[in-house]
């Protein structure tokens, strides 16, 4: 689906991603974890083509990401940035319709409007279809941006901190929605800070520290020592009803 092979990236000589390799399987829901500055956002940007690796290879569907045209890549992969705002007012319908951009030549047509309507109903946004996106709550806006990504009909969806500015309810709603999409066959990759949210909803995990991949795999990778080393916080890992919880104790 999407694979990274020995990817390196540096900003002004400062290494941000250092020899990262990983394969994201079709239909997986992967959380990219790590403390601030560990390279999560950079890794996401390397995958969606916003940044180019200085060495190593990023492949999407078996093809180098750099070999895709911008529109072609947008048909395969959707991206939801951490923060975004519209310069001028735009309705929810228009915002989601924008997701059809990779398929539109002059202006969106009847099919594009139909797909948009279907997504709005599917995500429960039909009642606010003609509302201004800039006047919605954070949770609603995030849902609209995911709807726009869905309108791209991608095989892959990348989200940078999708729960960063959401309250507890909307955090769970957003990740629940992403898990549903992943269960439907879409490959979903999120960078996220909350370990417990990630553990509840994601199926695979990558932990970055200082630009290096220090752990990858399923829930079994979470060990108290690993979390302490990466986050510099002593934690307790509790398992209850087959669910793992990470309880922070104190900073190291």
């Amino acid at each position: 689906m999407i694979s990274l092979t020995s990817v390196h990236f540096a900003y002004n000589g400062l290494k941000v991603i250092n020899d990262v390799s990983h394969v994201f399987e079709k239909g997986s829901f992967t959380a990219i974890l790590g403390p601030n500055g560990s390279g999560k956002t950079t890794l996401i940007r390397l995958m969606n083509g916003l940044l180019k690796p200085q060495s190593g290879l990023v492949e999407v569907m078996g093809r180098r990401a750099g070999d895709y045209g911008a529109r072609e890549l947008a048909q395969q992969m959707a991206y939801v940035p951490q923060s975004q705002y519209n310069l001028f007012p735009a309705t929810v319908f228009d915002t989601v319709l924008l997701g059809r951009n990779p398929y539109v030549s002059w202006s969106p047509g009847r099919d594009d409007r139909r797909i948009t309507s279907e997504i709005l109903v599917r995500l429960g946004l039909d009642d606010i279809a003609l509302k201004d996106i800039n006047k919605l709550s954070g949770g609603q806006r995030q849902r609209v941006f995911i709807a726009r990504a869905l309108a791209q009909q991608p095989a892959l969806m990348l989200l940078d901190e999708p729960t960063a500015s959401l309250d507890l309810k909307h955090q769970h709603e957003t990740l629940h929605l992403l898990r549903e999409l992943s269960a439907g066959g879409m490959t979903v990759i999120v960078s996220i800070h909350d370990l417990n949210l990630a553990l509840k909803y994601c199926t695979s995990f990558m932990i970055l520290d200082g630009g290096r991949l220090v752990a990858e795999g399923g829930r079994e990778i979470f060990k108290e020592k690993l979390i302490e080393d990466v986050y510099k916080v002593r934690v307790k890992i509790i398992t209850e009803e087959e669910q793992i919880f990470i309880l922070p104790v104190e900073p190291v």
């Binding site: 969606n48 083509g49 916003l50 045209g69 911008a70 529109r71 072609e72 890549l73 947008a74 048909q75 992969m77 959707a78 991206y79 940035p81 975004q84 705002y85 519209n86 310069l87 924008l98 997701g99 951009n101 990779p102 791209q152």
Partner: peptide, 9 residues
């Protein structure tokens, strides 16, 4: 926004 526009092709 730039990032969104780029990701939309």
């Amino acid at each position: 926004g730039d990032e969104t526009a780029r990701s939309l092709g």
